[in-house]
């Protein structure tokens, strides 16, 4: 009976739960699913991380490559994030060139790195005007159950934290650059941005960390990327309008979530190394 109700009238089914301030999976409205993180799981990559938020699973691998810098910014390296949403993770995606959602998510990741200034691109410079590091960050969604924004940012930043780059020196006899794979230097992260996504259900109700079911019922999302005590991005692409009085509680939740995630990643990081 319950199943029939859920299939026939999914929104009403949800509203029955929301009235009791609980969600069908037992979470409160402001509660995240359990977050699991596994660092340096790909040994062949320079840095990697596997993140699970509930059933949503994203793996990130970082590969460093040497390249010549752009002529207008000769002492800056590059970080190129790319999220792949393959048909493996959900039936809603097709194979072939990246779809719109994947492109927008990849651009969002690039914006987060740029705005949070978590990596100083000048530290990726080997020799100004000649050689810089390019960090190709490939993220693959293994299981899609909503909220890939939070999961992919978490995976990307965690992977950057584990990234180690080999030393590069100029060999003066041959006049060529040589890498020393045995001599690795960790990448310095200047900040740790953490994102929190809210879904707008109905007119006014905001729920944190939506599953894919909740995403399909929602009337818009808001993503807040928080630094320790500041905000670095707020992104609400359309959807049901919200009152400005609602924003402060969202910011509070985002900053609190930032603390939770940072302590989780730091704990995993220190236990691994």
């Amino acid at each position: 009976m319950v199943d029939h109700f859920k299939i026939a009238r999914p929104l009403e089914f949800y509203e029955k739960f929301i009235q009791q301030e609980v969600r069908p999976d037992g979470r409160e409205l402001g509660e995240f699913r359990s977050t699991v993180c596994n660092l340096s799981c790909i040994t062949t990559a320079n840095g990697s991380a596997l993140i699970k938020i509930g059933n949503t699973t994203i793996i990130c691998g970082i590969k460093a490559e040497l390249a010549s810098p752009a002529s207008e910014e000769p002492c800056k390296g590059f970080i190129i994030p790319n999220l792949e949403l393959s048909p493996m993770c959900s039936s809603r995606f097709r194979s072939g060139p990246p779809g719109e959602q994947a492109q927008v998510a990849s651009q969002f990741l690039a914006d987060v790195i740029k705005n949070s200034k978590c990596v100083d691109l000048e530290t990726l410079c080997v020799e100004s005007g000649k050689l810089v590091w390019v960090l190709h960050c490939d993220l693959i969604c293994l299981d899609y159950d909503g909220n890939i924004t939070d999961a992919s940012i978490l995976a990307l930043i965690a992977a950057l934290q584990t990234t180690k780059l080999p030393k590069v020196k100029l060999n003066e006899d041959t006049d060529k650059f040589e890498t020393f794979e045995s001599d690795l230097v960790s990448l310095a992260l200047l900040s740790h941005p953490v994102s929190t996504t809210f879904s707008i259900l109905g007119d006014q109700i905001l729920i944190v960390d939506p599953t894919s079911e909740e995403e399909s019922l929602s009337m818009g999302t808001i993503t807040i990327v928080a630094l320790v005590d500041k905000i670095c991005m707020v992104y609400k692409p359309g959807g049901n309008p919200i009152a400005s009085e609602q924003l402060p509680t969202l910011f509070e939740r985002a900053i609190e979530r930032g603390k939770e995630v940072r302590s989780l990643v730091d704990k995993t990081f220190s236990s691994a190394s």
């Binding site: 670095c232 707020v234 609400k236």
Partner: peptide, 16 residues
Amino acid sequence: KIVTINAKGDYRIEEL
């Protein structure tokens, strides 16, 4: 009411 926000950079909540 607020339909869309696109806020980039780094700022405190009061500034926003």
